[in-house]
Design a protein around this nucleic acid. Structure first.
Lengths: 113, 113
DNA sequence: CGGATATATACCGATATCGGAATATGTGGT
DNA sequence: ACCACATATTCCGATATCGGTATATATCCG
């Protein structure tokens, strides 16, 4: 048993930097696969495979356009991730947290793992 | 070559649901390993391993407390993820986007694979 | 010091992922 | 129908991950 599953979970889909890059590219609008291949200097099959994963989790949708296929961003599935992160807002912004930072800067923090 | 790396990237660390659960637990405050084991009904080695990964990406820090070791949340490394998500705010909130939703609700959305 | 509790690490097998190369599918133009 | 272009899929080897079990390390207590 390796990682829980992958193509069913947005967190997992976004664990790959290349896939994040693809999504970022698509913010500006629809793009054909070939364009992504050029923009990111990745192999065509690699891009297709990543697009497939992104498709499966619903982060992109596609439509045919001549011999091209245009992929577009579908941002709704990002919501669970946004929700999850939101839970940490308070911790991130808390006064205590910054105090922690400060103290750790002062002392040579010996710790972790 | 499998996934780029794992223990160096926050996105990757959070690809595992169990690790997200651990972080969520720690929002309320420091906890010893055993407490996490009980709360999440996971095996002790499993929890220790997940904590190690979280440690490596800086999402938790620990301090000894008698024979226990208290782990606490360190939310700063979440920032890159927040930043990355922020890029999609506009797309998520856009009018067109909601229109998309609407249209997809109306039609039995047939698309994508 | 010896035993008990708490946590970390090592080892293992199963599995899923990734990238590359080759190939299949599909579409348009002539 | 055929050829070129665009994309998807399959097959493959390498690798990293995960969970389990067993064991090591550490700390406290008597």
């Amino acid at each position: 048993m390796a990682r829980s599953s992958t193509t069913s979970d947005v967190f997992n889909a976004l664990a790959e930097a290349d896939r994040r890059a693809i999504l970022s590219l698509l913010i500006v609008g629809e793009k054909p696969v070939g364009q992504i291949v050029m923009d990111l200097s990745m192999s065509q099959p690699q891009v297709s495979k990543h697009l497939r994963v992104l498709s499966q989790v619903g982060l992109v949708k596609s439509r045919p356009d001549g011999r091209h296929r245009l992929y577009r961003l579908e941002p709704q599935p990002l919501q669970p991730m946004r929700d999850w992160l939101a839970k940490f807002e308070q911790a991130i912004n808390s006064r205590l947290d910054r105090l922690d930072d400060y103290l750790q800067e002062l002392q040579g923090q010996g710790d972790s793992q």
